[in-house]
C-alpha cells in the first residue's frame, strides 16, 4: 500500500532532514545537538523512506549495508581515541588543530569532533540494522 501524500512529502523532506542531521552533528560541540541526536535524525529519515517506499527501495538508496556503517563508525570513534595514544598521551585524550582559512579565521577541528562523527555513524548503522531487519521480517 503506497500513499501518494507520504511518498511525495518524503521526497521533499529527506534532503532537508539529512541536512538537519548533519547540522545537528556539527553544531553539537557548542550548541544543543551532537552525534547521537544527529544520527537518530538521519536514521529517522531513512525509516521514513522505508515506510513510504518499502525496505527494498531503502536498501537500494543506502547502497551499503547498515552493519558496515556501524563498523566504520566504531572504527572512527576508536581511531580518534588512538590519536591520543600515538601522541604519547592516554587513550582518548583530545587533540585539536586549527586549519587556517585566511583573514585571521580558522577551522578548529579535533579528535572529539571525529569521535562524534563515529557516534553519528554507529547510531545510524545500528538503528537501521535493527529497524530494517525487523521491517523485512522473514
Amino acid at each position: 500500500m503506497k500513499s501518494v501524500i507520504l511518498t511525495t512529502a518524503t521526497r521533499y523532506l529527506m534532503p532537508m532532514l539529512l541536512l538537519l542531521s548533519a547540522f545537528l552533528l556539527f553544531r553539537g560541540h557548542n550548541l544543543p545537538g551532537g552525534g547521537f541526536i544527529g544520527g537518530l535524525v538521519a536514521a529517522g529519515t531513512f525509516i521514513l523512506h522505508n515506510f513510504a517506499f518499502g525496505v527494498e527501495e531503502t536498501r537500494r538508496l543506502l547502497r551499503i549495508n547498515p552493519l558496515v556503517i556501524t563498523a566504520v563508525g566504531l572504527l572512527t570513534a576508536m581511531g580518534s581515541g588512538v590519536v591520543g595514544l600515538l601522541a604519547g598521551n592516554p587513550f582518548m585524550t583530545g587533540h585539536w588543530i586549527t586549519i587556517p582559512l585566511g583573514k585571521g579565521q580558522g577551522l578548529h577541528i579535533g579528535t572529539p569532533v571525529t569521535f562524534d562523527i563515529g557516534v553519528y555513524l554507529v547510531v545510524i548503522g545500528a538503528t537501521l540494522t535493527i529497524i530494517l531487519s525487523l521491517a523485512e521480517g522473514e
Binding site: 553539537g28 560541540h29 550548541l31 544543543p32 545537538g33 551532537g34 552525534g35 583530545g94 572529539p112 557516534v119
Partner: peptide, 13 residues
Amino acid sequence: AHGRNVVNVIIVD
C-alpha cells in the same frame, strides 16, 4: 575541550 555545549563535551570528551 574547546566546546561550549557542556552536555556534548561530556559525552564526546
